[in-house]
Design a binder for these strands. Sequence first.
DNA 1: AAAAAAACTAGACACATGTCCAGAAAAAAT
DNA 2: ATTTTTTCTGGACATGTGTCTAGTTTTTTT
Lengths: 206, 206
Amino acid sequence: MGKLVARAAAKEAKREAKKRALAASAIEALKCYGYANTTLRDIAAESDLSLGMLHYYFENKEQLLIYCVRLYKEAFAAEIGGRLAGITDRQAQIRALAGGLAASIIDDADTHRLWYDIRNQALFDPVFKPVVAEIEASLIDLVRPLAESPDDSAQISVLYGAIDGVFRHLLERHLSGVHSSADDLSHAFCNLLGATPPSAPPSPQG
Amino acid sequence: MGKLVARAAAKEAKREAKKRALAASAIEALKCYGYANTTLRDIAAESDLSLGMLHYYFENKEQLLIYCVRLYKEAFAAEIGGRLAGITDRQAQIRALAGGLAASIIDDADTHRLWYDIRNQALFDPVFKPVVAEIEASLIDLVRPLAESPDDSAQISVLYGAIDGVFRHLLERHLSGVHSSADDLSHAFCNLLGATPPSAPPSPQG
DNA sequence: AAAAAAACTAGACACATGTCCAGAAAAAAT
DNA sequence: ATTTTTTCTGGACATGTGTCTAGTTTTTTT
């Protein structure tokens, strides 16, 4: 019978649940101070757990962070993906994406700041490269349907880079206290994706 | 007479020269490991100076870094600004900018990585915000002439964010070992600035 | 040449931080 | 009820790191 394997699976599930709870607490701490400035003691305090427990569930600080980032990615990619699901009209896609990104700047500013922190770490520490590459690939996939030639990797790079750059810059402004309305933020993305960087439809000067 | 003040000025100039030399060495170390992972001992070793000297010339690690970043900014902004100087034709401006950015991705990859590291630090540590804001303002000014309405701050934000985002993403790819030619990199920027994200001039579908 | 100031060194100090361990407490299995 | 496994605690340990100080050497000034 599979009694033993069922038990083992239950154990594993319980452990995974604990890990997720721990990671959720860890994110709360990491969001505030960033990766480099968050100590394991901060995380332990936030999660009402003792310091030793962190190493009981995670090999080291890096692995804990990687786990956290994956958790975040699933949520965000799912959120945006859900908004785009089923939409085929290009203009509608753009509006949906713009609205989602704008809302997320306002609602999840700290989480995104953490993401950019990790992505930056990956530029120096190879340990983080796989997760970042994985997440970034899923973000690129999110954006791919907006491209006119979804197979042209150069075009996708430009598209993703541009959207991400605008997102990051608007996030930076938001975090600095320059609060724009969700509509204004959304318009920025529409402006980027609908027409060339500047201008709405046709403009008087060439 | 101004003998004394002349002497004092010479002293100050000499000290400044030393600081610049020290900062130049510091950048070499910082480029490799990033801000958080570079110790003052690394910098001391790189500059053939003793550890104590760093505090003799700079108040603390943060001030040293700020000094270094300013040094870098002057060089980069001057480089790009020089390429754009005197050009009035918009297409020529775009080509000049694209060429400059592309070349810099290949030639100064490590320095830019450091810049992004600092800019990221500023998202968490207020000490770095002024320098980053100052540098970013000068970069935005570099890009401003490309906008159709140089006074529309929302438009400028989108323009700067998009260019910076593409630059950062291409840099990331380059640092990951995906080496594109200067021409390909340059084309990416032209593609971004010349027309909407995808496609060249007019395209068949709407 | 003597005196004063600046440049520099070596090392200590305090503290933060990731890691690990011996054992207690709780839960699960027999 | 007993044993075994899992979960958890508290603290120790080693190391890295920014900062500072006492003293030395070099340069500059008189």
